[in-house]
């Protein structure tokens, strides 16, 4: 039995580079090149001087690396009469981002928690409306919201101004007319509203996957609605909060439409300012500065994407799995 050399035995010999494998990896490499190309083009263009761009072509690496376009894009590029660069848009975006992310995630996580553990009559109906509402084009709701924000400003004005005598006594500046439309708070409101369907779904599904008995045990232990939320649910759900933060930071940073409509030029987010810089018709086109500006704007979501790995995937896939 031992020496039968014709009979196969032992591990199957592996063909390292079978034809199918070469095809498979070849295709994947080509595809990767296609997807990486624009990133590469952005980087090399932003590191060249304008003369070099005019001479060479798009893909050639810079012969002389210069960071001047980056400096210019950040602090000198012009939009209209302002020539203080993209840094203004960057800080505006940061100012928009932080409250929007915090408020939208806070509100949605509490909604998801109420929907999972404290259902009441009609709560599922509201949730269904919310989910299907996510499919309504923004354009349908955009104008009525403008009116709502204006009215809300008018509504709040007398309340705020009622504090004016006290403020004057203290020597502080009194309230004038309160504007919510065109202000940061209005944009935060809009991001909270439109972030709600996907975030509520995300949190609802996550909370529903936690063992129900934990919730029951906490109730027997005498914890109430907020007690259970803060002491039990939130500490157990840190991963999903990270996913939600990734989702919202990239989403809000990348927003253009709401930024254009609900803010005014002084507080335009980075994307809006970028578009205004690159697509302005005045002056000579400085492609290297444009690409530096574009890359700068894309940097925040890119860093988050590459740093977060699978968590990003989990966030964007949340809308795709059935709730």
């Amino acid at each position: 039995m031992v020496d039968l050399p014709m009979e196969p035995s032992g591990p199957k010999p592996r063909v390292r580079l079978s034809r199918a494998n070469i095809m498979l990896y070849g295709i994947l490499l080509l595809v990767s090149l296609y997807y990486l190309l624009p990133l590469y083009v952005m980087v090399v263009t932003s590191l060249k001087g304008m003369p070099e761009i005019r001479m060479g072509h798009l893909f050639s690496p810079p012969m002389e690396v210069t960071f001047e376009p980056w400096v210019k894009a950040w602090s000198e590029a012009c939009t209209g009469i302002n020539c203080d660069g993209l840094s203004r848009g960057f800080w505006n975006s940061v100012r928009i981002l932080i409250p929007s992310v915090l408020v939208s995630i806070g509100v949605a996580s509490v909604s998801g928690y109420a929907l999972t553990n404290w259902r009441f009559k009609g709560s599922e109906t509201f949730f269904t409306i919310l989910i299907f509402g996510a499919f309504i084009p923004y354009q349908v709701m955009i104008y009525p919201i403008v009116i709502l924000l204006r009215e809300a400003g008018d509504l709040v004005t007398p309340i705020a101004q009622s504090a004016n005598p006290a403020l004057e006594l203290l020597g502080l500046e009194p309230f004038g007319k309160v504007r919510i439309m065109g202000s940061l708070s209005g944009l935060v409101f809009v991001h909270t509203i439109f972030g709600m369907p996907i975030l509520t779904l995300l949190f609802r599904n996550y909370f529903a996957s936690l063992p129900d008995e934990l919730f029951k045990a906490a109730r027997v232990d005498g914890a109430g609605f907020w007690g259970i939320y803060f002491r039990i649910m939130v500490p157990m759900s840190l991963p999903i909060f990270v996913v939600a933060i990734i989702l919202q930071v990239t989403g809000i940073w990348n927003d253009f439409l709401f930024g254009v409509i609900y803010t005014k030029p002084e507080i335009y987010p980075m994307t809006v300012q970028l578009n205004n810089i690159v697509n302005s018709v005045q002056g000579v086109k400085e492609y290297n500065v444009n690409m530096a500006a574009t890359l700068l704007t894309g940097l925040v979501p890119l860093i988050i994407y590459f740093a977060s790995g699978k968590l990003f995937v989990r966030g964007i896939a949340a809308g795709a799995v059935k709730g």
């Binding site: 990767s32 990486l36 994307t271 970028l274």
Partner: peptide, 12 residues
């Protein structure tokens, strides 16, 4: 590599 463009803004 294939997914990274999805993280970018449409403007970019």
């Amino acid at each position: 590599i294939i997914l990274y463009p999805f993280a970018l803004s449409f403007i970019v």
